[in-house]
Simulated assay, not measured.
Amino acid sequence: MAATHATNDGIAWLAPTEILFLQMQAWHATMAVGVNAAQGSARLTAEMLDFCGRRLLADSRTMRALATSGPGEAMNAPFDWLATAMADYARIDKDLPKIEAAVVDEVTEPLVTAWIQPDGKAA
């Protein structure tokens, strides 16, 4: 990298190659953050929609079973529904924080590495 140029007032001015590097890195980091944020939001949305779809399907099956069953069978339907609901909520409670942490890592990674030059030295 080119050396910085100091003036009489003590302010160091960047060489043109350094300015170009910083502009390119700033543009790249901004675009990468935007793309990663959009992809992460899509992943979170897909996971939540999948969860909602599973719950709605289980709820509709339980309602259908209650409507078509006799008195003895109707007593078991809420217990089956509760077991399925608890399993679904436990799974989303376990998976969602992992997805959120991965999204945060993906979004912040371009900001962390934006100022690292290809030779591995910090800018």
Rank of each mutant, 00 (worst) to 15 (best):
residue 94 K to L: 07
residue 76 N to F: 02
residue 39 Q to V: 15
residue 115 W to S: 08
residue 113 T to R: 04
residue 53 G to P: 12
residue 100 E to N: 11
residue 66 L to D: 03
residue 4 T to K: 14
residue 121 K to Q: 13
residue 9 D to S: 12
residue 22 L to F: 08
residue 81 W to L: 14
residue 84 T to K: 09
residue 55 R to A: 06
residue 35 V to T: 13
residue 96 L to G: 11
residue 75 M to V: 05
residue 89 Y to H: 08
residue 111 L to H: 02
residue 80 D to L: 14
residue 3 A to I: 11
residue 98 K to T: 05
residue 89 Y to K: 08
residue 87 A to H: 08
residue 22 L to Y: 12
residue 114 A to N: 01
residue 37 A to D: 10
residue 106 E to D: 15
residue 58 A to D: 05
residue 40 G to C: 03
residue 64 R to H: 06
residue 55 R to T: 10
residue 105 D to H: 09
residue 72 G to W: 03
residue 88 D to M: 14
residue 36 N to M: 03
residue 62 T to E: 09
residue 14 L to F: 09
residue 16 P to S: 01
residue 55 R to H: 02
residue 46 A to H: 04
residue 111 L to P: 02
residue 94 K to E: 07
residue 64 R to M: 15
residue 94 K to T: 15
residue 53 G to Y: 02
residue 94 K to C: 10
residue 57 L to H: 06
residue 55 R to K: 06
residue 57 L to C: 08
residue 118 P to M: 12
residue 32 A to E: 04
residue 52 C to M: 11
residue 77 A to D: 03
residue 14 L to I: 04
residue 119 D to P: 12
residue 71 P to E: 14
residue 12 A to M: 10
residue 82 L to C: 07
residue 90 A to F: 12
residue 21 F to R: 10
residue 77 A to L: 02
residue 33 V to Y: 04
residue 79 F to D: 00
residue 107 V to C: 01
residue 82 L to Y: 14
residue 1 M to D: 14
residue 60 S to F: 02
residue 4 T to N: 13
residue 78 P to D: 00
residue 77 A to K: 00
residue 12 A to Q: 12
residue 49 L to Y: 13
residue 117 Q to R: 06
residue 111 L to C: 03
residue 98 K to Y: 00
residue 96 L to M: 07
residue 13 W to E: 05
residue 50 D to I: 06
residue 34 G to P: 10
residue 102 A to T: 02
residue 119 D to A: 06
residue 85 A to C: 13
residue 30 T to V: 07
residue 79 F to C: 00
residue 10 G to N: 04
residue 30 T to F: 00
residue 80 D to P: 02
residue 25 Q to H: 10
residue 17 T to E: 09
residue 37 A to V: 08
residue 99 I to S: 05
residue 95 D to Q: 11
residue 82 L to P: 03
residue 123 A to I: 13
residue 99 I to V: 11
residue 41 S to N: 12
residue 85 A to L: 08
residue 85 A to E: 14
residue 55 R to W: 01
residue 83 A to I: 15
residue 93 D to P: 05
residue 39 Q to H: 11
residue 27 W to Q: 05
residue 35 V to A: 14
residue 45 T to Q: 01
residue 10 G to H: 01
residue 84 T to D: 06
residue 76 N to E: 15
residue 17 T to Y: 01
